[in-house]
């Protein structure tokens, strides 16, 4: 599992670079690096379905970000400036929240199983009944389209809403001054 740790370190370094760099195009490329590292980690934890979706979605995400940046500006003017009062306040609040959040995370990690020992209480039923009840050999497809199909319908509604939002915000009619 040493390669998993290497990719985690790579992902964290790329994330820090993406938040702190001055050039926005470089920040988006670092975002793409994080996404591809996540995709490779999905392969390493035996989730090929997720890896396929993550790679293609990551390509489209980078394309959309670059399209937006090329139309506007690619210099982040706010990086080198002095901190203002509200910004210092937000950093202090962030530190406060981080401490609270870490306490909660530490407590909830006591309940989680160790890495590599999933409990599989519900999943064993799905694996046992997947092939006899649905006939599909891909258990993930069985879960999203048969056992939990209503969940998928809800997600499709969310996608529809976001598409409607983008198309409505980008229309030209009714924008005359």
């Amino acid at each position: 599992m040493i390669e998993l740790y290497l990719f985690l370190i790579f992902m964290l370094i790329a994330a820090i670079i993406a938040t702190e760099i001055k050039d926005l195009l470089a920040a988006v490329i670092s975002l793409g690096a994080v996404g591809f590292a996540v995709a490779i980690m999905f392969i390493l934890v035996q989730a090929p379905d997720l890896a396929i979706v993550q790679i293609v979605v990551e390509v489209l995400t980078v394309v959309i970000f670059v399209a937006v940046i090329l139309r506007t500006t690619h210099i982040d003017e706010t990086i080198g400036k002095k901190l203002k009062g509200t910004q210092i306040l937000s950093i202090v609040l962030y530190a406060f929240f981080t401490i609270l959040f870490l306490i909660v995370v530490f407590r909830s990690f006591q309940e989680l199983p160790e890495f590599g020992n999933a409990t599989m209480k519900v999943a064993s039923e799905y694996i046992k009944l997947g092939l006899p009840q649905t006939g599909g050999t891909n258990i993930v497809a069985d879960v999203i389209l048969d056992f939990r199909a209503l969940d998928t319908l809800g997600e499709a509604t969310v996608l529809f809403t976001s598409v409607i939002g983008v198309v409505a915000l980008m229309r030209k009619v009714g924008r005359k001054k």
Partner: peptide, 11 residues
Amino acid sequence: VDPIPQALVLT
């Protein structure tokens, strides 16, 4: 491995 988290994350 557990298929339920994968099904939730896929969408």
